[in-house]
Simulated assay, not measured.
Amino acid sequence: MLSRTRRAARARLAHDERGITLAELMVSMILTTILGTMAVMFFVGASHAGYKTVLTNQNSGDARLTLDSWTSMLRMAGWLDPSIKADRFEEITSTKIVFYANLGNRSTAVSGAFTAPAATTKVALMLRVSNPATGVGQLIEVVFKPDNTTVHSVRQLGFNAKATAGQPIFQPYSRIGSAIDLTQLGCLRGSTPTAGLCLQSGQPNSGMLDPSIGAGSLAVTSGNHRGNPALNVDKALNQIGSIAIAFTAVDPSNTSSMAFTSLASVSSGYPS
């Protein structure tokens, strides 16, 4: 019995003195590497997911603010010349709308003296597509000074947006609620008839026609969309009773999205 105990003790001592074999060391290193890689991948994935969530929330917040701002502006649409009542909307395509709004007459201040209403403000709202393959681009708002030619402000409100399931960004409706066809060739691009509604050019004091944004900057220049005299759509533009706005905000990788929509009822066109 005692001899067996001594032999077991000597065997354990011999094993302890032998140390770790090369095979054991390699197995240990491989397991450590695998566990370390899994830990790094977990933290990288968690960090990426968190960053993506932040960007998605930011895009959604920008989209909500854009929708509220644009809906409010369209509700204030007014006539450039109230005496003829023929120039409230200047251009409407699936991705752009140019109109005049009573932005200077929204004050709620009340005074005893009569104050003449301010002139209407020219506004252009548009989606500038920067990725033709996905249709994703920026939501841009242009506001002009009283001369309707000099730009007062250019705001890039949404950085990752696109049309919702093929719907137009801007869809006009008549006063009786019927959708106005935006596929009709009511515009001329140079000499080529194109889809949309464009007021006949030459309106007095209309300022810059077809305000457009360049691809590499926020510079505003006059585009080449004009009214198509062969398909005069002035009457359709004058009969607009509401404008639907619809777009989808996406994350930078275009993997998650959220749709936004609103309906702006157009006012009488006169300062309130």
Score class of each variant (00 low, 15 high):
residue 205 N to Y: 05
residue 6 R to E: 12
residue 265 S to H: 08
residue 62 D to I: 00
residue 226 R to C: 00
residue 114 F to E: 07
residue 70 W to P: 01
residue 90 E to M: 13
residue 153 S to N: 02
residue 87 D to R: 01
residue 8 A to L: 12
residue 3 S to G: 09
residue 171 Q to I: 06
residue 271 P to E: 00
residue 131 N to D: 15
residue 271 P to R: 06
residue 89 F to G: 02
residue 144 F to Q: 05
residue 252 P to N: 08
residue 6 R to V: 15
residue 30 I to F: 15
residue 172 P to Y: 04
residue 251 D to N: 15
residue 233 V to S: 04
residue 24 E to V: 08
residue 146 P to E: 06
residue 34 I to G: 07
residue 135 G to D: 09
residue 194 T to A: 12
residue 102 N to S: 09
residue 180 I to C: 09
residue 131 N to K: 12
residue 7 R to T: 08
residue 99 F to W: 01
residue 171 Q to D: 05
residue 109 A to F: 03
residue 262 S to K: 07
residue 270 Y to R: 05
residue 248 T to R: 12
residue 182 L to N: 03
residue 34 I to S: 11
residue 57 N to A: 15
residue 63 A to D: 07
residue 11 A to H: 13
residue 143 V to S: 04
residue 220 V to R: 00
residue 182 L to Y: 03
residue 8 A to I: 08
residue 22 L to E: 06
residue 268 S to E: 11
residue 16 D to Q: 11
residue 213 I to H: 00
residue 207 G to D: 03
residue 212 S to I: 01
residue 138 Q to S: 12
residue 253 S to H: 06
residue 72 S to I: 00
residue 54 V to G: 06
residue 135 G to N: 13
residue 139 L to T: 06
residue 99 F to R: 07
residue 153 S to R: 02
residue 206 S to V: 07
residue 116 A to P: 00
residue 198 C to G: 04
residue 33 T to G: 10
residue 242 S to Y: 02
residue 71 T to P: 03
residue 252 P to K: 13
residue 56 T to G: 09
residue 163 A to P: 00
residue 136 V to E: 12
residue 80 L to C: 02
residue 180 I to G: 09
residue 207 G to I: 01
residue 255 T to V: 13
residue 69 S to G: 00
residue 37 T to L: 14
residue 32 T to N: 05
residue 214 G to P: 00
residue 211 P to Y: 07
residue 48 H to K: 11
residue 154 V to E: 03
residue 45 G to C: 11
residue 56 T to Q: 12
residue 205 N to D: 10
residue 51 Y to R: 14
residue 27 V to A: 14
residue 89 F to I: 03
residue 24 E to A: 13
residue 208 M to V: 09
residue 180 I to W: 08
residue 229 P to L: 08
residue 166 G to P: 01
residue 216 G to N: 12
residue 44 V to E: 09
residue 190 G to F: 04
residue 172 P to A: 05
residue 165 A to V: 08
residue 39 A to S: 14
residue 120 T to A: 10
residue 213 I to Q: 02
residue 123 V to K: 02
residue 44 V to L: 12
residue 172 P to W: 01
residue 244 A to K: 14
residue 88 R to S: 06
residue 191 S to T: 15
residue 84 I to Y: 11
residue 224 N to E: 12
residue 72 S to W: 03
residue 155 R to K: 09
residue 69 S to P: 00
residue 131 N to R: 08
residue 97 I to G: 01
residue 42 F to L: 15
residue 178 S to L: 14
residue 75 R to K: 10
residue 141 E to R: 11
residue 261 T to Y: 10
residue 133 A to S: 14
residue 157 L to A: 04
residue 168 P to D: 08
residue 134 T to H: 11
residue 14 A to C: 01
